[in-house]
């Protein structure tokens, strides 16, 4: 009698366990379903572009003018180059600054300083991108124009600076975690061998934290490549092929944001914007893939 009660309880517990397991499994699957759904949508809406535009023109032409007066053109090379320009430009600014800041926070700063600085840096991430874009127009732009003696500051440098600022909190926060979690023994061993703390930081701590720092940089890059509003406001959006960092550029994201609002449904222009979205999707996917491979490689190297 008693034992059967227990076994029934057991059974209920088992079923409950199963249900919970199933629930979490369903959640995991859902993420995949959503991802596939999004990719399917991008493809199903994007592919009809190529009924009227050749893939070769789409991927090799530098002229984008779907609402042309006479002859619509759909070439996205200029926009891909623009996107890569601001993304790498932002990394050139934010990676050294971010890692230096993270190293300071993790290794040099007193606990009290860190307690004040870290939340403030993380607050930087909560500034809306429109606000940053606005600062790009009224503050960063005129400053760039004055420094480089240009007529205006709506160019790739402006976009890079803004994106750099936006990527900073991500890079600092994650790098700092990575540097902090380097085992104390590594540093002590290095110091015991007679090196100074600068040498220890550069030769021991940072290399040991490299996988975390790489992840931080990749996440910062993902943030920069997908950012829309700030670059839309600050880079001028001229559809011409970018000539230099001092010229106006137009990114993939800005193009979608500008044109999707007014485009008539089920036209080549509408489909082409989804195709642009698919290209952007593939680009971010590649970045994530590369960062994953890098992470694994370094993870193995450590063992």
């Amino acid at each position: 009698m008693k034992s059967s009660k227990i076994s029934r309880k057991d059974e209920i517990a088992k079923i409950k366990e199963k249900m919970i397991e199933l629930f979490f499994f369903a959640n995991g699957v859902l993420a995949i379903v959503v991802l596939i759904g999004i990719f399917y949508l991008l493809l199903s809406e994007g592919l009809p572009t190529f009924r009227e535009v050749s893939i070769k023109e789409f991927l090799t032409s530098t002229r984008w003018n779907p609402v042309s007066y006479s002859n619509p053109e759909y070439g996205i090379v200029g926009m891909i180059v623009s996107t890569l320009m601001v993304t790498f430009g932002s990394l050139i600014l934010s990676v050294p600054l971010g890692i230096a800041c993270a190293a300071y926070l993790a290794e040099v700063a007193k606990p009290k300083e860190r307690e004040i600085l870290k939340p403030i840096i993380e607050m930087l991430a909560s500034i809306p991108s429109v606000v940053i874009g606005f600062l790009g127009i009224v503050m960063v732009g005129p400053m760039i124009a004055r420094i480089f003696n240009l007529s205006n500051g709506l160019n790739a440098i402006n976009g890079s600076i803004l994106l750099g600022v936006m990527a900073l909190p991500t890079i600092i926060s994650i790098s700092e975690d990575a540097i902090s979690s380097v085992p104390e023994e590594y540093k002590q061993a290095s110091l015991a061998l007679g090196t100074n703390s600068w040498h220890t930081l550069i030769k021991v701590t940072l290399p040991a934290a490299l996988s975390g720092i790489t992840a931080a940089v990749m996440l910062g890059m993902g943030r920069a490549i997908g950012e829309t509003m700030a670059v839309l406001m600050a880079t001028g959006n001229a559809p011409a092929f970018p000539k230099s960092f001092f010229g106006s550029i137009r990114t993939l994201t800005a193009t979608i944001a500008i044109e999707l609002g007014e485009v008539p449904y089920n036209t080549t222009h509408y489909y082409s914007l989804f195709a642009v979205g698919a290209v952007l999707f593939v680009m971010t996917f590649m970045i994530n893939l590369v960062s994953d491979i890098v992470l694994h490689k370094y993870g193995e190297g450590e063992n």
Binding site: R63, N65, I137, V138, G141, P142, A145, S151, N152, G153, L154, L232, M233, G236, N237, A238, P239, A240, S248, R250, I258
Partner: peptide, 19 residues
């Protein structure tokens, strides 16, 4: 295609005042 495409009238005004 070298025309800067601004997001609204106010942005054009700001751009022209500074340039």
């Amino acid at each position: 295609d070298t025309k800067n495409q601004m997001n609204g009238n106010a942005q054009i005004v700001e751009g022209v005042r500074a340039d």
